[in-house]
């Protein structure tokens, strides 16, 4: 059992790839936003890829362990401490029953991941333990952790090994730089934006607004301009140029709501009535996950093939070859 002493800003139980198979009824996938870091954390402690762990946003939780455990913290540098002594990032280590693990403020990046050998053993909802707190499902009682809650842990059968570390070159390359190069694949609705609009999207700085969360990242930037498809359309599409007959939203969609682009992420809506001129591919999600309000995105257009190659390159790193002994 894991006792929550301080919950952190927004700490949720997540698993990967999340809640699959119910998208058609409106359930998003949820799951960890930076699945690169999340999967490496599970690998470090010897868990299967679908074991549940914690996603910690901006400021992490303080938890007391009810049993001995092997754990790993990856992703944002939240300066982990075990009984007030510094504990490593990107490395599995042993925790004794009764010890307290503290994750602090994210010094670098925005989201850290805590994996415990044996996994977090909350009750799956529709096949997944991932928390979708907008609708109150998954995780522990459907929401982010609260103080004094107890998280059940799965049996680790002695599988966890301390002293395993992710090689630095196999981790997401976090830096103090607050400008991110963000890949975006044109489409599905790129034909609704005119040439000047595409140029402005690809050549401008886009600032992440404070109102950004696991549903979507709102961006400030220049105005959009449209083709005839957006301005000369049947009335049922709606009045605004960015309106379209309700359609499905890809995860990662750069969803244009009036003039405000919102990048829809893991807990985003499955459908709606706005266009999606670009889609951020899965290989760039770790950057979304690790960016903070006020950070700047500079987009570059990539093809479907290029986006898939980048994802393959990340997937290859979620492997035993990326682990070294301390």
């Amino acid at each position: 059992m894991l006792e929550v002493i301080k919950p952190g800003l927004e700490t949720t139980v997540q698993d990967w790839p999340g809640r699959i198979g119910h998208w058609e009824q409106g359930f998003p996938f949820s799951g960890p936003m930076d699945d690169w870091s999340f999967r490496l954390a599970n690998l470090l402690v010897g868990n299967p890829p679908d074991a549940a762990g914690l996603e910690c946003q901006f400021t992490g939780p303080t938890v007391r362990f009810g049993r001995d455990a092997v754990v790993a913290v990856t992703g944002a540098d939240m300066q982990p401490a075990l009984d007030n002594a510094p504990a490593p990032m990107w490395e599995s280590f042993a925790v004794r029953a009764g010890q307290v693990l503290t994750l602090g403020f994210a010094r670098l990046g925005a989201r850290a991941y805590l994996a415990v050998a044996g996994g977090i053993d909350t009750t799956p909802v529709l096949g997944s333990r991932a928390t979708f707190h907008q609708a109150g499902i998954g995780g522990l009682d459907g929401y982010a952790l609260k103080a004094e809650q107890n998280l059940p842990l799965g049996d680790d059968n002695g599988t966890g090994t301390p002293g395993r570390r992710v090689r630095p070159e196999c981790r997401p390359p976090l830096t103090a730089e607050r400008v991110w190069r963000m890949e975006a694949v044109p489409g599905p609705n790129d034909d609704w934006i005119d040439e000047a609009g595409h140029r402005r999207f690809l050549e401008s700085d886009w600032t992440v607004q404070t109102r950004s969360n696991r549903t979507g990242f709102r961006l400030d930037g220049p105005a959009w301009s449209f083709t005839e498809r957006a301005t000369d359309k049947r009335p049922e599409h709606g009045e605004d140029p960015s309106n379209i007959l309700d359609h499905g939203y890809p995860v990662g969609a750069v969803n244009l709501c009036g003039q405000t682009p919102i990048i829809l992420v893991n807990d985003g809506p499955s459908t709606g009535g706005f266009i999606n001129p670009y889609t951020v591919p899965s290989a760039a999600f770790w950057k979304l996950a690790q960016s903070k309000p006020g950070d700047v995105y500079r987009f570059s257009a990539v093809s479907v093939d290029e986006a898939q190659d980048k994802r393959r390159a990340i997937n290859r790193l979620i492997a035993e070859a990326s682990i070294e002994a301390v």
């Binding site: 694949v185 990662g252 969609a253 290989a283 479907v304």
Partner: peptide, 10 residues
């Protein structure tokens, strides 16, 4: 058919 990133097709 139109791509939605690396994982989706509309």
């Amino acid at each position: 058919f139109r791509p939605g990133g690396d994982r989706f097709i509309e």
